[in-house]
Design a protein around this nucleic acid. Structure first.
Lengths: 245, 245
DNA sequence: CGAAGTCTTGAAAAATTTCAATTCCGGTGG
DNA sequence: CCACCGGAATTGAAATTTTTCAAGACTTCG
């Protein structure tokens, strides 16, 4: 676990900006596309866009849930923190992903920007209304929830039974997929710090760092710099990550 | 992780039996109740009931998904197994719970009876049809999926950051809730073996056993026998489990 | 260019797992 | 009804893994 530097609490880390859904870069990926095009306007009336700078906070644990979100650019982390500062990064959220529905009235997570990001926020009231009016919308949400649940179950197996090296390899493979990186592109960007990775994989920063080093020593990856991985031996990496694929 | 004894593969561990939904003990809890009463019949036409004896198999990883399930009595475990026999019990499923929807076409889990159990099986085709016809049904499924997702996230934090003692305490508290045990009843039945608990909490059998012993030595619980816990100091137990509540 | 924070590395400490008995419990059969 | 058998649970000791503590190197960004 790691502690959050003060830098994470900057002023003006959050800005509401105008919005043009028609030009949305992730429209095809987002839930927006599950609505019949004419009625998609209805969704847009409930939407506003938020710009976050790195480490800006979108929501904080304990606050009432008011919105669901969809990421347009950048990357967020969904973080659970215990009183004694133990931390778990439940997920890294990337463009096209919709999230924020929960069975609870109050946020149990903080949602923070890993890097500068833009997200669309949908009022939950509006969401509820749309769910009632458009079965295809509710359907899409349930499909997404089922996939999210599968992902969470994968993470449980990873946290419960994989070695640090396997966890890191799996993380890299999943991140690559999540970012929709082309098959022949060997580079994976790591916008998040080692502490976030550690808290995502249930390890310490040191163990994560040592695992990176081991992958490098084994010729599986190269690390041009700490925030960029080059995959040198894809087969070896996928073998290490084979438990979850 | 633990290996499965041969006893788990008995013949006749699975029986299809007639069904009377009107008398279902868990009807109020199950998704069935989300359908308008007259139309609930539609669901029943897609249902059949299965009786499993202890360690009987309801589904096996790798098989195509054909049904979703609802537990009527007993207890099931949802198990993920790696080729090298590492195992993770994703969840224990208790009466009233509906499960089996997933983003995948093929089972990634085995579903086995912890103790003699009865479950209702719904053909996925029928489910899909009902989802389309009855918005309230789809709505109920999404609500359930959101809660399941919250649960999975809780488990992730548990697996990533809690000590063995905290994990076991949390497990006992959650199991008590899940079984809807009355507030003043100090007993919790543990139908599952230590191996299942270990594979659920990401520990070894030995560590689970030692953790039980520590709880006993600290006067938090008593163990009349390995499958029955008496909670002696509820406050202490909940303090240990406080991270997840 | 320099300071602050981040990442890496090493060594010691702690925790959990592994290995190995022993004990306990439940079921079976005499 | 009781003794016995086999699997399950507990306990102990050694081994391994990961964490913790500490220091140094490297980035990044103002």
């Amino acid at each position: 676990m790691t502690t959050q530097p003060l830098a994470r609490c900057r002023q003006h880390s959050r800005t509401v900006v105008p919005l043009d859904c028609a030009r949305c870069a992730v429209r095809e990926l987002a839930v927006c596309s599950s609505l019949p095009p004419p009625e998609a306007d209805a969704l847009e009336r409930h939407v506003f866009s938020i710009e976050l700078q790195a480490n800006g906070e979108l929501a904080r644990a304990g606050q009432p849930c008011r919105h669901a979100y969809s990421v347009t650019s950048g990357m967020l982390r969904v973080v659970r923190t215990l009183p004694d500062a133990r931390r778990q990064v439940v997920a890294f959220v990337t463009p096209g992903h919709f999230f924020g529905l929960s069975g609870h009235k109050v946020h149990r997570y903080s949602i923070e920007a890993v890097a500068a990001s833009r997200v669309c926020a949908y009022g939950l009231d509006g969401i509820d209304e749309l769910r009632q009016r458009f079965p295809s919308f509710e359907h899409a949400l349930l499909e997404r929830a089922c996939r999210d649940l599968d992902d969470a179950h994968d993470s449980m197996l990873l946290l419960a039974r994989l070695s640090p090296l396997e966890r890191l390899a799996t993380f890299l493979v999943r991140l690559r997929q999540q970012m929709r990186i082309r098959g022949d592109d060997p580079f994976v960007a790591l916008p998040m710090g080692r502490g976030d990775i550690a808290d995502h994989l249930g390890l310490t920063v040191e163990t994560v760092s040592r695992s990176f080093t081991r992958l490098r020593e084994q010729g599986v990856i190269a690390l041009p710099d700490p925030h960029r991985v080059e995959i040198l031996d894809r087969a070896a990496l996928e073998e290490l990550a084979s438990a979850l694929h």
